[in-house]
Design a protein around this nucleic acid. Structure first.
Lengths: 334, 334
DNA sequence: CTGAAAGCGCTTACAG
DNA sequence: CTGAAAGCGCTTACAG
């Protein structure tokens, strides 16, 4: 393995000069620089970035914690993070937490082990013991931000306005004449779920329509939970004429139940999803949904992380990006 | 930052002893060990694994190169790799190459920079310049293996038997009475595509049915390419009564075109996919497809990589895992 | 079983 | 603009 020493010898300079040429060329004279650069080429030198990170205490790596990488919602966000990271000279380490605290912690500890500089959380699970145990004062945590979800702990976040997005979805259904609109929410205790539920209710309220508790279901964002929730809804006292699901996968699951019951969308039941994943447009019928600018969210997350790691002051703790209702064919007049 | 030195002082031993206690406890006496362990706890010491990697020249990290993480086919493989890696004490670094050589190389170079110990390639693109430029002798490459795809360069691989899988799919359609079976293949030059095409043809041959060139399409595994290929097929001189697609996404795309043409599956056209991604079961109709044991492939890949990195001799260069035809509702009698 | 010491490959004040 | 030297936090022969 050729090291900086070999290059130095070959170029007839000190290792310090080689190092400078490579990481801060301005500091080196034109002449020396080219001598060094030639030596680098001739020797086939490749920098040992581990040694560099070790020395500088910077890994130029961020960890992205994902609840489940097989959930297609996350992939475009990750791609956004990744492309921005590349621009900024950062690496992305992906950690699939499987909603498991222990796994999350193990990845989060990479920051303490100096293998990563910061953590981007996709999803609401905070690896809590990250600072000293149970210390909930954000200041003591390693650099950590959150995408899509958010907390009341003041963790910087990039997301859409979920209240207003849920309102847009519900308004759309109400404007089509629906009065019995079911809502399949995500896990109850997340702020995001609460926001969307709030939007769903607010929309009803403004329209002077009662949002029936019977029409409220909770899923876990999986296809299967959409299937199950929809089955229950089909057996409700009041059968809904429309369903709004907190993500596209549950909407697609619901669609399956609707068809299995011999019904069809949108003729019997209209359905709106959330996220606008790639498959949304390829369902039958193509799914009306709320579009989240996933790649933008990813890029904004990495920009935010970069600012934090560079000690740039943040203008805001909450970056809110625009969403959009995408009307396809799964919704129709009642 | 507390270091091994602080722990040593606190425990009244040398740093060597602390190091041994932590990485090879057998070497240390019971008594000293507990002294050290206490000191570790009291000081809140967290090992700097960067320093460790730097010193031992092992990063305990493998890079997984994926052509496109938003392709759901890969996620379960990655999860398999990841879970096995965890068992073996390895970390997984995910690189989304976007089919871009430059990106692939940048990730591959992590091995040379000592940031990773080996590379797992998902997809057929080899970051070629990895060894000395243009050196195609595998021996000179960093530890590198390939999943699902394979090459004729002797790179160790884990995959299914694609010839036989394609035969199973085609046989199934033939057994339903189909005589005009179209095939939407993946990118032409990959060995995998060739294998599947071979299986498709072999199946025809055995049944004494001609596989028409007009019924052969090439896609790029995307939903959209399935749409396009199917549109062309619907305008072919001989309209196929069945379509076999080299992955589920193209099959789902094809399904969309079939419906848009006012036809339906399987009544007018039967369709078989490949991979059995999660959405396959949630299509309308649920997709008949070839199941690939993705999590198993992932685990086997990591096991293989582990063997290589541990210098264990490999029994075989080619791990072939079983596939299965999953008959759902997208196929029917002609 | 334990410690003193060298060294992994870099970077960076410090001095000139 | 350049070099000598210290040091980042570990591990590991070597000696005892």
């Amino acid at each position: 393995m050729t090291s900086i020493k070999d290059v130095a010898k070959l170029a007839g300079v000190s290792t310090a000069t080689v190092s400078r040429t490579l990481s801060d060329p301005e500091l080196v004279s034109q002449k020396t620089r080219s001598k060094v650069l030639n030596a680098v080429k001739d020797s086939g030198y490749i920098a040992n970035s581990l040694a560099r990170s070790f020395r500088t205490r910077k890994s130029d790596t961020v960890v992205v914690l994902v609840p489940d990488i097989s959930n297609p919602f996350y992939s475009n966000i990750i791609q956004g993070i990744e492309s921005e990271a590349k621009l900024k000279g950062y690496r992305v380490m992906l950690g699939d937490t499987q909603m498991d605290q222990e796994r999350a912690l193990s990845y989060a500890s990479m920051v303490q082990q100096r293998q990563a500089d910061g953590i981007i959380l996709l999803g609401a699970d905070i690896p809590f013991v990250v600072g000293s145990e149970g210390d909930t004062s954000v200041e003591n945590w390693p650099p950590m931000i959150m995408g899509c979800e958010y907390t009341d702990l003041g963790l910087p976040t990039v997301r859409i306005d979920n209240v207003s997005a849920a309102m847009d979805a519900t308004d759309h259904l109400i404007s089509l004449g629906h009065k019995h609109i079911a809502y399949i929410n995500g896990p109850k205790n997340s702020p995001l779920s609460k926001d969307r539920l709030k939007g769903y209710r607010e929309s009803h309220q403004r329209a002077g329509i009662e949002a029936l508790d019977d029409l409220l279901e909770v899923g876990d964002y999986s296809l299967q939970s959409g299937v199950t929730a929809m089955k229950r809804l089909l057996n409700a006292d009041v059968r809904p004429t429309a369903v709004f699901a907190a993500n596209d996968e549950m909407a697609i699951g619901a669609l399956k139940s609707i068809k299995e019951a011999g019904l069809s969308a949108p003729d019997d039941i209209s359905i709106v999803g959330f996220d606008d994943i790639r498959f949304a447009d390829f369902c039958d019928p193509p799914l009306t949904t709320i579009h989240q600018p996933r790649a933008d969210i990813g890029r904004a997350l990495m920009q935010l992380m970069y600012q934090i790691l560079s000690d740039e002051p943040l203008e805001t703790n909450e970056v809110v990006l625009p969403h959009a209702l995408v009307v396809r064919e799964s919704t129709g007049r009642v």
